[in-house]
Structures are given as structure tokens and as C-alpha cells.
């Protein structure tokens, strides 16, 4: 049975071939192939991870943006409210200031008017008194046109002074 007895030549060549192949392929081919496949697998894994993270970030960004918008809206309404409040306050203050100013002006006017009035009164009195004096002078002149009357008056005045004393 030739089939069951190993032939030396074939054993020899088989051994040589296996050893040579193992050395060559084991040194130059398989490690490189395995490394390349591993590297590629790592790269793909990294890519998938990156994509997942990016998607997560995108989702986060969306919700974050929503949050920001909400915040902004809140702030906006707050600012508007604040503005309205301030407007009211300013108006109020302005009103107050205006009324104070008006009061001041009115007071000043009152004082001025009073002064005017007093002055006018004084003037009026002066004038009235000067009128009265003039009138009295005129009257006196008319009535005192004669000496008799004059002496009468002097008499009378003297009398008066005497009675008073």
C-alpha cells in the first residue's frame, strides 16, 4: 500500500516548504495583514463613536438652543416689563418734578404779584396822597382866597391844637 507509507522525498519537500512558508509569511505577510485589519477596525470603531458623539452633540445643541431661546424670551419679557416699569416711573417722576417746578414758579409769581401789588398799592397811595394834597391845595386855594377865611382857618386850627392839648 503505497498510499499509507509516507514517501521520504515528499516528506522532505513538504517540511522544507512548510518551514519556509511559515517563516516568510509569518514574518512579512500575516502580521501586516492582521495589523492592517485591526487598524481598519479601530478606525471604523472610532468613526462610529465620533459619529455617535457628533449626533449626540447635535441633539444637545438643539435642546441647548431651545433652552437659550427660552431664556432669551424670558429675558426679553423681563426687559420689556422693566422698561414699562421704568417708563411709568419716569413719567411719575417727571410729573412730580413738573408739579414741584410749577409750584416753585407759582410761588415766585405769587411773591412777585404780592410785591407788585404792594408797590402798586404804595404808588397808588402816594398818588392818591399827592392827588389828595393837590386837591386839598386847590380846595385850600379856593377857600383861602381871602384873608378872612385864612385867619378863620388858622383860628380854628389853633383851637383844635389847644383843645387837643
Amino acid at each position: 500500500m503505497e498510499l499509507f507509507t509516507p514517501d521520504f522525498g515528499l516528506v522532505f519537500w513538504m517540511f522544507v516548504t512548510v518551514v519556509v512558508m511559515c517563516v516568510i509569511l509569518g514574518k512579512f505577510a500575516w502580521p501586516y495583514i492582521i495589523k492592517s485589519m485591526g487598524d481598519r477596525a479601530d478606525l471604523i470603531d472610532k468613526g462610529v463613536l465620533y459619529a455617535q458623539e457628533a449626533k449626540e452633540q447635535l441633539d444637545n445643541a438643539k435642546s441647548e438652543a431651545d433652552k437659550f431661546i427660552l431664556e432669551a424670551k424670558k429675558q426679553q419679557s423681563e426687559i420689556l416689563r422693566e422698561a414699562a416699569r421704568m417708563k411709568a416711573q419716569i413719567i411719575e417722576e417727571a410729573k412730580e418734578a413738573a408739579s414741584v417746578e410749577a409750584q416753585k414758579v407759582m410761588d415766585a409769581a405769587k411773591v412777585a404779584i404780592e410785591q407788585e401789588r404792594k408797590e402798586a398799592e404804595l404808588q397808588f397811595r402816594n398818588e392818591v396822597s399827592s392827588f389828595a394834597i393837590r386837591i386839598a391845595e386847590k380846595l385850600l386855594r379856593e377857600r383861602m382866597a381871602d384873608n378872612k377865611a385864612q385867619s378863620q382857618l388858622v383860628e380854628k386850627l389853633l383851637d383844635e391844637i389847644e383843645t387837643k392839648n
Partner: peptide, 14 residues
């Protein structure tokens, strides 16, 4: 595995 890959892979493909 890498240490014996040279022999085993070669044998498989052979």
C-alpha cells in the same frame, strides 16, 4: 495569538 499566527494561518491556507 500573534505569536502562533504565522504557523497556523500558513497551515490553514496551505
Amino acid at each position: 495569538a500573534p505569536k502562533y499566527a504565522g504557523y497556523l494561518l500558513t497551515v490553514f491556507f496551505l
